[in-house]
Design a protein around this nucleic acid. Structure first.
Lengths: 335, 335
DNA sequence: AGGCTTCATCGAAGCGCTTCGACAACTGCT
DNA sequence: AGCAGTTGTCGAAGCGCTTCGATGAAGCCT
């Protein structure tokens, strides 16, 4: 194992000088700096992480806590996690992956053991059990998602209310007067998941504003469940000409069912989805959609973390504006 | 911050005694042990990770390296990652998440800085650039996937050759005589990804053995690409009555297309997939499938790591036997 | 009873790094 | 010429833990 002492010896300086070259916390002459750098390169030196954490009081690690529920959105979560990890690396942090399984106690453990300098909590729920703990611990936390009361917290999230509204506005602008929101599984609403409720609220408000009638139908992602909900929609509101879908699993079944029923997209019925770009672009119909900017959220979360870590910025709510991309699944309402 | 010294003082013992209670490396009387434990509990003590790593020469961290390519299988990777993390926790390890982006140099960095006691490499390719490095570093590595030459390495993987074979055998057993393997994207084969090639080889061998004719058609996961490949299959071999699908993205488009073409599943055509259980069970037709045991692989990988870490076991190739579940998408070949 | 083990505990060293204060060598004033 | 300030470097302390050797007490044998 290569130590800082060996690097120092080879460069003809003291260990502390090497440390200062590495951290830049004191001025070092150009020649010395270069000599040290060369020595580091030639020996392939990487500072011992434990020693560095102990002496420096920072671990150079960001903890990433998965949601308590991992029954859904695996791809989205993975995308966020990858974005967090790569962005973190670009700021010289590593990422510790914590599962929801350990629950709130993981927050305590990581904080107490100084395993991480900061934490990112994914997919926080409106009333997340981990939140009260955040006040009691030293390392700053950034939330992906939005709890009921985000005051005093640093949050990054898509503005789901605006996303719901923009889907409705899009359809209204195309002349649709009766629409339905095909939502997440009922369980998601029952546990008051923030993003689902905010999307719904945003959509309802927009519907009111534009004088559009809107049904809300939560659904499981299975083919049969989607079929049942779709039938209900058209039974109750035969004049429905627009669908907003916020349920990744339901998308393909839905398109497939419409095809089977002889309802052409977008001639007879328009579909707007709230889902990852990739899903929208790869679906059997190229879907008009509001993107779920997973990567962007991961990236921003890390940037908020870094800011908190090396400046004294205020906690803030960072809502990404939804971007609706018009593809081929939506068009003017049939006459 | 609570230190071991405080725990010791409160329990009326020396710090070293507390350490021995924690590690169990020396005999401690029952009363002392209990007193120390109580003290730990009451103070909410968690050992400082950095100090522990430095003094003990083990970080209690397992590094999980994502594949170099992350363009695919995000849900599967996420499942593996979650299984790795939870299993690791149950053995008192944390997991450091490394992206492929950093490439092979991440192996060096983690080893040199002693950031992890072991590493798990996901989705290794036949000729993975990270492999040569593994010989040069101290921490043991476990691979998920199988390189060209697995000798001397500890690997965990589904037995894809057997998986391919069992799909073909299943169809052959139902009387099918002409089948097609709808595979991953061409790029996957071009870069010689192990699992895709082994599946193909296994399927081919089984086809030969059972006297079945088999076409192999790699395909992108888009609707249009699947449609094109499907057309080609039925043009070239109108007698095709069985499909093996190894391409998650292609599944729904495929089922949807068959429906549109008026080919009933499984009356006219049988479909067998190699995909995660959940996908097979939630598809628009309940698919006969060989499961991709993501969780099991993650779990096993950690167990191999732990074995390597605290015993001296030999490197080994751990191939999971494929399990084919018969659902409603496959049946007797039409007369 | 004296010497040997065994058991339970302690004290101190040291893991590799960061950081603080000290200091020598310059610089630029007056 | 003499002094204050600046710049570049060093030595040493100390971060909180593990572990090694030492030690005292207790139990066992002859």
């Amino acid at each position: 194992m290569v130590t800082i002492a060996e690097v120092a010896r080879r460069a003809g300086v003291s260990p502390s000088t090497v440390s200062y070259v590495l951290s830049g916390k004191r001025a070092i002459s150009v020649e010395t700096r270069e000599r040290v750098r060369r020595s580091i390169r030639e020996l392939g030196y990487h500072p011992n992480a434990g020693a560095r954490a102990l002496a420096g009081n920072r671990s150079h690690v960001i903890a990433l806590m998965m949601p308590l529920r991992t029954d859904m959105y695996l791809p989205v979560m993975m995308e966020i996690a990858l974005a967090v990890a790569t962005t973190a690396r670009s700021h010289n942090y590593d990422v510790l992956l914590l599962t929801g399984e350990e629950g709130a106690s993981a927050v305590r453990r990581i904080a107490d053991s100084a395993s991480a300098d900061a934490m990112i909590l994914m997919d926080v729920e409106l009333d997340d059990e981990r939140l009260p703990l955040l006040d009691e611990i030293a390392p700053p936390a950034v939330l992906i998602g939005q709890p009921a009361d985000p005051s005093g917290l640093t949050c990054v999230d898509l503005d789901f209310a605006a996303a719901g509204a923009s889907c409705v506005a899009h359809l209204a602008g195309l002349g649709h007067r009766e629409i339905a929101l095909i939502g997440e599984a009922p369980a998601v609403y029952e546990r008051h998941t923030g993003f689902a409720e905010r999307t719904l609220a945003g959509a309802r408000a927009a519907a009111r504003e534009h004088g559009v009638r809107m049904l809300h139908r939560p659904t499981e992602g299975t083919y049969d469940a989607v079929a049942a909900q779709l039938t209900r929609v058209f039974d109750e509101r035969p004049g429905t000409t627009g669908l907003v879908v916020q349920n990744e699993a339901a998308i393909e079944p839905l398109l497939s069912l419409l095809r089977q029923q002889g309802r052409a997209v977008p001639e007879d019925i328009s579909v707007v989805a709230i889902c990852p770009e990739q899903v929208a672009a790869q679906a059997s119909v190229r879907l008009t959609s509001v993107a779920l900017p997973a990567q962007e959220m991961g990236r921003r979360a890390v940037e908020r973390v870094v800011e908190r870590l090396d400046g004294t910025v205020q906690p803030s709510l960072d809502l990404l504006a939804p971007e609706l991309t018009h593809r081929t699944s939506s068009g003017p309402a049939p006459a």
